[in-house]
Simulated scan of single mutants.
Amino acid sequence: MKVRFLICSLFLISCLGLKAQENFSAAVNFKTEPTEKVNFSETNIAVFYQKKLGAKSKITNTLEYSNLKVNYELNPYDFYADQDKFNQIQNKFEYSSEITEKTKWQLSIIPTANFQNKLDFSDVTVLGSLEISHQIGSKLNVIVGVGRTSIFGAPKFTPIVAFDYKMNEKTNFRIGFPDSKISYSNNDRNKFSLTNSFNGNFYRLDEISNTENNAEKAILSQMTSALEYERNVGGNWFLNFKAGYDFNKKYNLLDSSDHEVYDYNIGNGYVLGIGIKYKQ
């Protein structure tokens, strides 16, 4: 009980400042990703707030809970049958500040607990990133940095680079790694986006497999290209829709040294998502 209380405190500590928030949003998203051998369905709940600290600095915080369900249509290995549900609790805290009028830096700290059913300290991992952005002219912004991320499944240090270009008041481009995006808004209520992102996750298993493989962690990764649409349906409420395809999709099991011990060979597949968001 004490362990659960301390872990929850780690993720909820940022909520103490909610009364002083400047921007707030809450969202619920549903996503399905079927493949040839395994079908994935995920539910995500997120709460976000942002607060300025004077004229040059601000903080943002996003608290998320995700539940991933896995349906094994073809699974001849009964000792993996219990790996049908994974959970994640994640808190992303960001601090950004101006170095000069055109140059800014941003630090993010992301404690995340990825587990099956039993939440423990061993499930907690700290991710994060450090980025520096520089404005070139009135339309181009260059971003470089490094992060400890899970975009390839297991946590690793990865580079971050992006070029943000504002073509006009309606159209914006971001070309970079791990995320690229083209967005267009024809009015205040509609926003269309074409995205490409490298993304992944990992989950610690409750029980080590009793086979010679000794799997301790499940990892997923893919590159996703998608078309997204967000619609303001009235007031502060927004609906969003997503349709795309996962390339180079992987679902593997790792041992304690992060060596691959089993590959599900699930193949690629499409992704469909729908969500609702409240923003103020």
Results as ranks from 00 to 15, higher is better:
Gly275Met: 05
Glu42Phe: 01
Ser97His: 10
Gly235Phe: 10
Val28His: 07
Leu205Lys: 05
Tyr184Ser: 00
Asp164Lys: 14
Met223Gly: 00
Lys58Cys: 00
Ile175Arg: 08
Val146Ala: 15
Asn214Gln: 14
Leu254Asn: 06
Lys19Phe: 09
Lys139Gln: 15
Ala46Thr: 09
Tyr165Cys: 04
Phe163Gly: 10
Val146Gly: 14
Gln116Glu: 15
Leu239Arg: 01
Gly153Asp: 08
Arg231Ser: 05
Tyr262Arg: 05
Leu16Lys: 05
Asp123Val: 03
Met1Arg: 09
Leu140Val: 09
Leu18Trp: 13
Leu227Cys: 02
Asp206Ala: 05
Ala162His: 04
Phe152Trp: 07
Val124Leu: 15
Phe11Leu: 15
Ala154Lys: 14
Phe238Gly: 00
Asp258Ile: 05
Gln83Asn: 14
Leu272Gln: 03
Gln106Val: 06
Lys85Tyr: 01
Ser138Tyr: 09
Asp179Ser: 11
Phe30Gly: 12
Gly234Cys: 03
Ile208Val: 15
Phe11Arg: 07
Ile109Asp: 06
Ser257Ala: 12
Lys139Trp: 03
Glu228Ser: 08
Ser25Ala: 14
Gln83Ala: 09
Tyr245Arg: 02
Pro155Ser: 08
Ser133Phe: 04
Asn268Ala: 03
Asn186Thr: 07
Leu254Phe: 12
Leu254Tyr: 14
Arg204Phe: 13
Leu119Trp: 08
Gln50Val: 00
Arg148Trp: 08
Tyr95His: 05
Arg204Tyr: 13
Gly145Tyr: 09
Glu169Phe: 04
Leu107Phe: 11
Cys15His: 01
Tyr165Lys: 05
Glu22Thr: 10
Asp246Met: 02
Ile182His: 03
Gly267His: 07
Glu260Ser: 06
Glu33Phe: 03
Lys191Trp: 02
Lys69Trp: 06
Lys181Met: 13
Ala27Met: 12
Trp105Ala: 05
Ser209Gly: 14
Met167Arg: 10
Glu98Thr: 06
Val233Ile: 15
Asn23Trp: 08
Leu68Tyr: 11
Pro155Ile: 10
Leu205Ser: 05
Phe30Val: 02
Glu22Leu: 02
Asp255Val: 04
Ser257Gln: 13
Thr103Glu: 11
Asn29Tyr: 10
Gly153His: 06
Gly200Lys: 08
Phe24Pro: 00
Gly275Lys: 07
Ser185Leu: 02
Glu169Lys: 14
Ile175Asn: 07
Thr100His: 09
Ile182Gln: 02
Asn44Lys: 13
Asn141Gly: 01
Leu272Ile: 14
Tyr264Asp: 10
Lys85His: 07
Phe5Ile: 11
Val3Glu: 15
Glu36Gly: 04
Ile160Asp: 02
Ser197Cys: 01
Glu228Val: 04
Val271Trp: 02
Gln50Phe: 12
Ser256Leu: 07
Asn201Pro: 01
Leu239Thr: 06
